[in-house]
């Protein structure tokens, strides 16, 4: 019978905390760049101009269709050869997940924008607004409110996907777990605790998202049925 001993894990709690902070840092950075980039990609794809729509569509489809780990390897191992820059694990991770998540956010934005009724466009045109004015003042504010549930789901997916950065030795929570497991010879306890930490953090965000969803559903603004 295996005897569980969590003391070595607790002794390294500071490393785990540091790892969690790094996980949140890379998630936050990817969100900060991924959301505006996603909006830009969505607008380009919806612009109706082939010169904008086609490349945006390609970026979106490519990054949604290829495995994120392959993308991360490309940005970490291949890109530095091509442009001759020193690539830190954090830079490669932030770059990969900003672009990868922007492809998914673009589809969330597009879905939200498309879901706004035609009449809203016609009404804003009738008031004399240019298309970019109506997008900014009329369409986007309504679309964004509807997108919140899908958007939260994507953010949670992103946080789970950031565990891949451990493979290029960025010191996120999973990487720290691996280090501690090797140091203490207690992989069972370490990985169980770390799985538990991810579960608690992500479940809290999910529950928050669900509550928000329900409130939006009550006010009739959600796209989730």
């Amino acid at each position: 019978m295996y005897r569980w001993d969590f003391a070595p894990v607790l002794a390294n709690a500071d490393l785990l905390l540091q790892g969690l902070v790094n996980t949140l840092a890379v998630t936050g950075t990817a969100l900060a760049f991924g959301i505006p980039l996603g909006l830009a990609l969505a607008l380009a794809r919806l612009s109706g101009r082939r010169l904008l729509a086609w490349p945006a569509g390609f970026v979106i489809e490519f990054f949604r269709t290829t495995p994120p780990l392959v993308q991360l390897f490309w940005f970490f191992f291949a890109l530095p050869v091509l442009i001759r820059v020193e690539m830190t694990p954090f830079m490669a991770s932030a770059l990969t997940f900003s672009i990868q998540s922007s492809a998914f956010f673009a589809e969330v934005f597009r879905g939200g924008i498309v879901s706004v009724e035609r009449g809203q466009w016609e009404a804003s045109r009738a008031l004399g607004m240019t298309p970019s004015q109506s997008m900014r003042r009329i369409i986007l504010p309504q679309a964004v409110k509807r997108m919140i549930p899908a958007f939260m789901e994507r953010a949670i997916e992103l946080m789970k996907t950031t565990t891949l950065v451990a493979i290029v030795s960025y010191a996120d929570l999973l990487y720290q777990a691996n280090e501690i497991a090797q140091k203490t010879f207690r992989p069972l306890e370490v990985f169980t605790v770390v799985a538990g930490i991810y579960f608690v953090v992500i479940l809290m965000i999910s529950l928050l998202a669900r509550r928000l969803e329900r409130r939006l559903a009550v006010s009739g603004e959600s796209t989730v049925h």
Binding site: Y2, I156, M159, K160, T161, T163, L164, A166, I167, L174, A177, N178, A181, P187, L188, V190, F191, T192, V194, A195, Y198, F199, I202, L203, S206
Partner: peptide, 17 residues
């Protein structure tokens, strides 16, 4: 609500115990 990579590593490193 847990990352799949954590699950894989759990099965690989922790389960054998």
């Amino acid at each position: 609500n847990t990352p799949v990579l954590v699950q894989i590593l759990w099965f690989y490193f922790a389960l054998p115990m």
